[in-house]
Design a protein around this nucleic acid. Sequence first.
DNA 1: CAGTGGTCTAGACCACACT
DNA 2: GTGTGGTCTAGACCACTGC
Lengths: 263, 263
Amino acid sequence: MASPPPSPADNGMATAEAPAQATPAFSPLYQQIKGLILQSLQAGEWKPGEAIPSEMDLAARFRVSQGTVRKAIDELAAENLVVRRQGKGTFVATHSEQQVQYRFLKLMPDSGDQGSEGPAQRSVLECRRVRATADVARALALRSGDAVVQVRRILAFGGVPTILEDMFLPGNAFKGITADQVAGYHGPTYAMFEVEFGVRMVRAEEKIRAVSPDAQQAALLKVEPGAPLLSVERIAYTYNDVPMELRRGLYRTDTHHYRNELN
Amino acid sequence: MASPPPSPADNGMATAEAPAQATPAFSPLYQQIKGLILQSLQAGEWKPGEAIPSEMDLAARFRVSQGTVRKAIDELAAENLVVRRQGKGTFVATHSEQQVQYRFLKLMPDSGDQGSEGPAQRSVLECRRVRATADVARALALRSGDAVVQVRRILAFGGVPTILEDMFLPGNAFKGITADQVAGYHGPTYAMFEVEFGVRMVRAEEKIRAVSPDAQQAALLKVEPGAPLLSVERIAYTYNDVPMELRRGLYRTDTHHYRNELN
DNA sequence: CAGTGGTCTAGACCACACT
DNA sequence: GTGTGGTCTAGACCACTGC
């Protein structure tokens, strides 16, 4: 900053409208801008599906050039936090109205893709408040015994039960969730979380194993007791890497497979 | 292009040093530049691990601004085809000298990461020329009956056999490959492919299932016949999405798990 | 048509690595 | 210091969308 001809916001920290905030670390301007946009995002200044201000507006607001805002938004778009649409604007990403039905579900039918078999048939077996066991608490960054909601359900494709999964949700953020809400919502469960609880899942990690089901699990999935199943343990995170869901799934892989791309 | 003050390479196609080439499609300049760099990459103009010309040099060579070259390289870096190092240059990506030992292996010990258990102990069981069966041929874009090399090996961690895998390689590109080459090379097998055969794997796709091993597989992995195992079928691609390897692996997941990140 | 994101340029300065 | 990639700006024009 501070060259003969140009003399923009004399840096030291992007002043903008972020008064006292104690951001001691130094980082590139566009990273700071990204952080400020991120804060507005998690503060709910713009809701999922809505447009955020144009690049010009944001550049004016933060007193930086459009190119700097652009680079910040580029990174947010790369992380799937916003979606750019030429000629229209930049929109807050959402699990609703998304091109792919299930963004985090990598299970594909052996022939065709997710879209080719229509939505899953969902049946909720359980939805109740429980106390977090040690492992659940650790995954959700809670303490053992804290209130969590457990939801157990089965997803079927073409009438064949294929996924049996337990979701564990922090009791605080998901107060009052009901089985009907989980079963009755039209669209991805993560979209329901956005609409009903204001919780947006941003990324997730999965640990996958091959396991044998116990008698109850085998019965629910209608497979023999010895049949191998895919165990998928997922932790989903909101903004700032805060874990908001632990999901333990058992997948039948006789007519489906878990698809992954390596780069 | 063609504005009052500036008047660069008057577009229509980045002239540069790519004479007759029949690229009818129109695309942004930086995409064209990216394509040209890509061609030099696969033509072997710069070898894995070497530096490519500086952004300024490339800008001069292609008659575009540094910013345009930068955006082209940005995309190549995002696809892991090159690696940028500030102050030093931009380098052709390689499976050797890489931060993570195994770039495509997502199997992690249940505690710690890949690095924490040292390299795998490898033992090659088989290495022979065979004729492609229909499914192998389809995966490698060959015809049934074409020559392929099949390599079967076991990877063990801490003395425990953990991975049993069969690699199928196009006979043409991997002429003369020997069991000793596969077993004796220090470093990732994909690094050996680069050095010995000039084949660089750029990306891969995996299909994952839970299966029960047959008697032979169970014996080799030292598990009971009924034990569930992870079946990982990988197709690895070179430049231009040309498949160059089909790898069928069976993973024990009693002390390891397959780790995936969703974004 | 105006407004939005997308491309391209030119030039300045910063951060880092080698020598 | 020189050379590399990394950041930032300012301004022009293009491509798409919707009024």
